[in-house]
Structures are given as C-alpha cells and as structure tokens.
C-alpha cells in the first residue's frame, strides 16, 4: 500500500517536472519579457522542487524495495540523469534570460524536444516492461 502511494506521488511529480521543463523550453524559444520572468518563477517554485521530489521518491522506493539489483533501473537512471541535465540547462538559460530581460538568443528546440521525448519513452518502456 505504502509502495503504491509512493509510486503515485512519484508519477505525479514526474508529470509536473516534465511538463514544466517542456513549457520552460517553449517559453525560451518563443517567449519574451514578462513571460520569461513568470516562467522562471514557475520553474523555481514548482518544476525544480518536482524534480527533487522525483529523485527523492524514486531513490526511496529503489533503496527500500531493493530495485538497485535490477539492471533496468540502472538503465532508467541514465535517462533520468540526461533529462535532469536538460532541465538544468533549460532552467539556467531561463534564469539568465529573465535577468537579462530576454536579451539572450532563443533556444534551439530541434535537439532538446526530441531528446526529452526519447528519454521519456525509454523511461516508460523500461519501467513498464522491466526487460532485464
């Protein structure tokens, strides 16, 4: 029961984190001025704490229920680290753009969005199928 509650909270945090990162990347590409400042605030108050919650709940479940012995989890962690790196990059640029009043060159989404989607697909497949 407790495991299911932790898992549900983990999934909610993942949705908020991924959605927040996606919106932040879109704002960096197409937004300007006040929108950058507002989404920087959203990233600081909602998206980044959601990422911390994802990691905390995920590690709690993995340690508590012994998932670290499974190879699929290690593979999943690689994609979560990449996704965290993308969020860190987007968050840093958003912060810089908000401070500079949008004077930063717009973000090129051609690599970021496919990379985010690929990571999400890989994570979902590894968690659901647990292939190894």
């Amino acid at each position: 029961m407790l495991y299911d509650v932790l898992k549900a909270a983990h999934i909610v945090a993942v949705i908020v984190w991924f959605g927040g990162t996606l919106v932040a990347a879109l704002v960096l590409a197409f937004g300007a001025g006040e929108a950058l400042r507002k989404f920087h605030e959203f990233d600081r108050r909602i998206t980044t704490p959601a990422m911390a919650l994802v990691w905390a709940l995920g590690l709690t479940m993995a340690v508590w229920f012994g998932w670290f012995a499974s190879a699929w989890l290690i593979a999943k962690l690689v994609f979560v680290v990449v996704l965290s790196g993308i969020h860190g990059m987007v968050s840093g640029r958003l912060r810089r753009a908000a401070a500079a009043g949008g004077e930063l060159p717009a973000l090129d989404l051609r690599l970021i969005l496919p990379a985010m989607l690929a990571c999400l697909c890989a994570i979902a497949l590894l968690v659901v199928l647990k292939p190894f």
Binding site: A56, G88, M89, S91, G92
Partner: peptide
C-alpha cells in the same frame, strides 16, 4: 541524492553563464 542535486546545479550554473 545530494550529489545529483549538486551536479544539476553545476549544469544550471553553466547554462546561466
């Protein structure tokens, strides 16, 4: 967990310039 958070903050600081 803390090490990952630190690495994330390093990446963010790099992106921030």
């Amino acid at each position: 967990l803390i090490f990952l958070a630190f690495c994330w903050a390093v990446v963010r600081a790099r992106a921030e310039g």
